[in-house]
């Protein structure tokens, strides 16, 4: 992790208001290059909103933030070229084939024909989807779909990849494989920003921030958190913090 300590995401008192409701309340943190940074919190704690602001899907109400050294207010278009994104919902086209999906997403990121050809063949080989390449995505098992989604999000070799609860509804075995893929990406230098509400997944991250009611209540490595809260595991840490929550889950 972070030998160079190059800051890829920097947030300073970043807030988002929806009318009177404060979804994200002055959060500040740094994410370093090659790190797997976890965003942990109950439903409605503001994880997704925070992530959307960093991706350029949502304009912050106040505060400062840079992604890949680019200001989120002034250079959202350049940020988009440097990031990959995988949303909560499965986000490939079910009525297109595996290959068509790969080509489409590679295409809209502006990859050249040669790159697209190479990468799609490579990707299909790596996922072991050779036989399914010409089949509709609709017919794939959910686990494979998720893995395909992640691979597609990484296709244009982004500096940072944002994963919004990527493992929802996936069985434990596939989840493990999925995390193997995340590690691979991190090793090859991609910074991973992942939100989750699975506490065991938090252990996989290099550092975690725990969000409660729109605020970051704790930020450290899993080990550090366990020490601070003198807890046996992440569950205990989380429950100690989450007990303070007043906000209802959405």
């Amino acid at each position: 992790m972070s030998e160079t300590k190059e800051v890829l995401i920097h947030a300073d008192k970043l807030s988002k208001h929806f009318g009177d409701f404060v979804a994200v309340d002055e959060i500040s943190f740094d994410v370093y290059k090659g790190e797997i940074f976890g965003f942990l919190g109950a439903n409605g704690a503001g994880k997704t909103t925070a992530m959307r602001m960093l991706c350029g899907l949502s304009t912050p109400s106040s505060g400062q933030a840079t992604v890949a050294g680019l200001d989120v207010y002034r250079k959202p278009e350049q940020i988009k070229k440097n990031i990959g994104y995988m949303s909560q919902k499965f986000s490939l086209y079910e009525d297109l084939t595996v290959m068509e999906n790969i080509r489409f997403f590679a295409g809209i990121y502006g990859l050249s024909d040669k790159q697209i050809k190479e990468k799609s063949a490579n990707l299909v080989g790596r996922l072991g989807l050779e036989k399914e390449a010409k089949k509709l995505v609709a017919g794939l098992p959910l686990g494979w779909k998720q893995k395909l989604s992640l691979s597609v999000a990484l296709l244009h070799e982004p500096k940072i990849v944002f994963l919004d609860e990527p493992t929802g509804g996936v069985d434990p075995v596939t989840r493990k494989q999925f995390w193997d893929m995340i590690y691979e990406a991190a090793e090859s230098g991609t910074t991973v920003f992942v939100t989750t509400h699975y506490l065991d997944e938090a252990e996989y991250c290099n550092r975690i921030s725990i969000m409660v009611d729109g605020k970051i209540e704790a930020l450290d490595s899993p080990e550090g958190l366990r020490k601070t809260y003198s807890a046996k595991n992440m569950d205990e840490v989380f429950y100690q913090l989450a007990r303070k929550a007043t906000r209802q889950a959405d």
Binding site: K80, Y85, I108, G110, F162
Partner: peptide, 12 residues
């Protein structure tokens, strides 16, 4: 389907 978000995050 949620694909719109992915499109909006892309440089397209």
């Amino acid at each position: 389907l949620g694909t719109m978000e992915v499109l909006l995050v892309s440089p397209f």
